[in-house]
């Protein structure tokens, strides 16, 4: 998309930005910093021509209006912000397919939106091209990010909606508030999970509003496809272990995306979870299903927390004990 069409598309953002600038000196400073960053991008880094201080004027606002057309302001939820304009949506690492999209690119940040992170992991694992196709870079350094949104509760189908986002992200405690960057090559960081999360934050109204949700709904946002939600009725054992294994193995073989959510643990279940999977198993947490061993009757789970927190080869009996639901899409 050209810068020109951006200006038209984003004209509605002008009044929002103006109001925000008038509200407080802190916001005004942030607006100025954002403006400087965007001008650097728009002018190819000739900020020295413009000087150190840039006043936010109505003309400038009109120029900048396309950047975050429906955006929450960058940094509004955090204590600072980080500029990832030196990053790129996708970095192709050895071992990844041609898109550069990999489930391991996704690492949850300081928000309780594990369900969205798990959904990104699950879709990236099943269909990396689908993730790749959601994001395109614009000439002005912003990105167009597509999510599939149901306009109304009663809407039968989700339709694509494009959110234009800038590569700046709020921080807290010296790290990004939301998702961490993925792979890196030199100084170039891979930011596709951060861009998708920011578009989702715009969709929700703020980063904080992304907290708490369901993996199935998030996978639908990313794919536009309906989700099969399978409840396990925690502790009652109503779904046979063989059926669970067949469901999950079949879904992964068919290149479908699968997430699984734990329930709220009672005292005994919590004690068992801490003993069997210390540091890895959380209640009310969502994981991506990464592997199923039907013969060995185990399920391996990708934890959005990252690091060494994945759960490999969990016996299906434990899966039944700790998990409340799994969602399949594709």
């Amino acid at each position: 998309m050209s810068s020109q069409s951006h200006l038209r598309a984003g004209s509605g953002a002008q009044s929002t930005t103006e109001a925000a600038v008038r509200e407080s000196p802190a916001r005004q400073r942030r607006g100025n910093q954002d403006a400087q960053a965007r001008i650097r991008r728009l002018t190819g880094g000739t900020e020295h021509v413009l000087g150190e201080t840039i006043e936010v004027t109505p003309d400038l606002l009109a120029l900048l209006a396309g950047g975050d057309a429906q955006s929450v302001e960058s940094g509004v939820d955090g204590t600072g912000e980080t500029d990832m304009s030196t990053g790129t949506a996708f970095v192709h690492d050895p071992g990844e397919d041609k898109t550069g999209v990999n489930a391991d690119d996704v690492t949850q940040g300081q928000l309780a939106n594990c369900y969205f992170m798990a959904a990104m992991k699950a879709v990236a694992r099943a269909n990396p091209q689908a993730i790749h196709d959601l994001i395109s870079e614009n000439d002005d350094g912003t990105y167009d990010v597509t999510l599939y949104v149901k306009e109304h509760v009663w809407s039968l189908n989700a339709s694509p909606k494009v959110y234009t986002v800038s590569p700046t992200f709020p921080t807290q405690g010296g790290r990004t508030l939301g998702a961490e960057a993925g792979d890196s090559v030199g100084d170039t960081r891979e930011i596709w999970p951060m861009l998708l999360e920011k578009a989702f934050a715009i969709h929700c109204g703020s980063y904080k509003e992304t907290e708490y949700g369901f993996g199935g709904a998030a996978m639908q946002l990313l794919t536009g496809q309906d989700t099969d939600n399978v409840g396990l009725l925690l502790g009652l054992g109503l779904r046979a272990e063989a059926t669970i294994l067949a469901d999950l193995a079949g879904a992964l073989t068919d290149k479908k995306a699968v997430t699984a959510a734990t329930g709220e643990f009672d005292a005994d279940t919590l004690k068992a979870a801490k003993a069997a999977y210390p540091g890895r198993l959380g209640q009310k947490h969502v994981y991506a299903v990464k592997e199923v061993d039907v013969e060995g009757k185990t399920i391996s789970l990708d934890n959005p927390w990252g690091g060494d927190t994945d759960i490999d080869h969990m016996p299906v009996a434990d899966f039944k004990k700790f998990f409340r639901q799994y969602d399949i899409v594709g």
Binding site: G109, A273, G279, K284, W305
Partner: peptide, 25 residues
């Protein structure tokens, strides 16, 4: 004070610390 929500990953002194399993215990 820093407030974190269960299931999130806090940044404490720059270290990532997952937070989970709230209970009365």
């Amino acid at each position: 004070a820093m407030t974190f929500t269960e299931t999130a990953v806090a940044a404490l002194a720059g270290v990532r610390v997952p937070i989970a399993n709230a209970a009365h215990a």
